[in-house]
Design a binder for these strands. Structure first.
Lengths: 216, 216
DNA sequence: GACTCAGTAAGTCAAGCGACTTAGTCCCGG
DNA sequence: CCGGGACTAAGTCGCTTGACTTACTGAGTC
């Protein structure tokens, strides 16, 4: 029964529900198009300032949503890094970029909102930097990039950085587009998240292995 | 008839200035974060309904901005198609995707706002479809995709569609990121638009040529 | 059994919003 | 030189927003 809840647990429960509601509304209508009021009301809070009370500004709320998914992603990526340690197969390392998000999205079931939320948060001028920094700064992400660098010593640093950015953009927006198509019932190029992952892997492998033209 | 030229010209001038102002504000703060009022005021219009009067809804305004750049892009792409007619070099056809936007952005000078505007418009749930349809539907774009299809007969239709989408995403968001970095004065992987174009070309060539794993 | 305090309910307020109206102004065809 | 239609100025109205305040609740503390 509800009576057995401690007040801390009750608060955390509310916070969690606000986060889930906000993620959904943000994914559906865009981060800027949703007011704190709407979130509070949709989360069943009579106080329209509930979001402000629990999270502060909208940027804080967005960051809280990002951090809500961070541990799961970190765990998946760290696990993969452990199993491929020392591998010289480029595909293994690119998989460390692609698989954590695709598998995480699959585990969320349908409908999910995370991919669309991230795509919009990383495109919004006011949120972009803080969200990207938060995701790229994780230890497993740093290790993955280091692994790619080790495997592609021929690439100039600028090209490596460029292709790293491209990989991030591609993964985020391809996943978001697929999630949206799933939700709207429109056809997708690939039938499952696993298949979409393979499509991304193939494409990114080609992208990273492509010869580069120097522009110095 | 032509007799109303001056009146019309004045109106067109205002319309044009509103479009340029809206494009800038949208790029800086996000489409949803900017009100019609702010645009009207920033464009020096005393009537806060000026945007509504000239363009209607916000979606109409966004479409008008897209169409403002469409002829220049179409012309560049059509010209390229004419010069490479019959080419069997994949790089030529991918260049028809990449060069029109990069050269257009270069021609706009600094600061430009178009790339960031497009990136946000194509990510916004409410505008996405209409903007993408508008850009993909152009004759030269259709011809380019047809050319790529002719050159890559081995690729299953789904993979071709997938890589087509990936190309679009990559071009849009890489250009937007570069434009933003230029505006903020932060370092960019490539020094010029021409160099960025080559980076995109290299990457997309690898992406399109990559072997594919069937997921049937 | 009174006290504390995190959390929730409910309401307030100025500012800003979209949508609209009214009152001009300007140019040109007649 | 007048009338009509395209355009702009200025203001209005009802509603939503973020930020805030006040009052209440109920679990844990003493």
């Amino acid at each position: 029964m509800a009576g057995t809840r401690t007040r801390q647990a009750h608060g955390n429960e509310t916070r969690e529900f606000i986060l889930a509601t906000a993620e959904r509304l943000f994914a559906e209508h865009g981060v800027a198009a949703v007011s704190n009021r709407q979130i509070s009301e949709a989360a069943g809070q009579a106080n329209n300032f509930a979001v402000g009370y629990h999270f502060g500004t909208k940027a804080d709320l967005v960051l809280a949503i990002v951090r809500r998914h961070a541990p799961a992603l970190e765990q998946r990526r760290a696990g993969m890094l452990a199993t491929i340690a020392g591998s010289t197969d480029l595909r293994d390392w690119i998989a460390c970029l692609v698989r954590p998000p695709t598998e995480h999205l699959e585990s969320l079931g349908s409908p999910s909102w995370y991919a669309r939320f991230i795509a919009q948060a990383t495109t919004d001028p006011a949120l972009r930097k803080v969200v990207i920094d938060e995701t790229v700064a994780s230890p497993s992400m740093q290790a993955t990039i280091a692994g790619l660098t080790r495997l592609m010593p021929i690439l100039p640093a600028e090209v490596r950085e460029e292709r790293s950015d491209m990989s991030r953009q591609l993964i985020v927006h391809v996943c978001a587009e697929r999630e949206r198509a799933l939700h709207e019932g429109t056809p997708t190029p690939r039938a499952t998240w696993k298949a979409a992952e393979i499509g991304l892997l193939d494409a990114l492998l080609g992208l990273w292995q492509a010869p580069f033209t120097s522009t110095d």
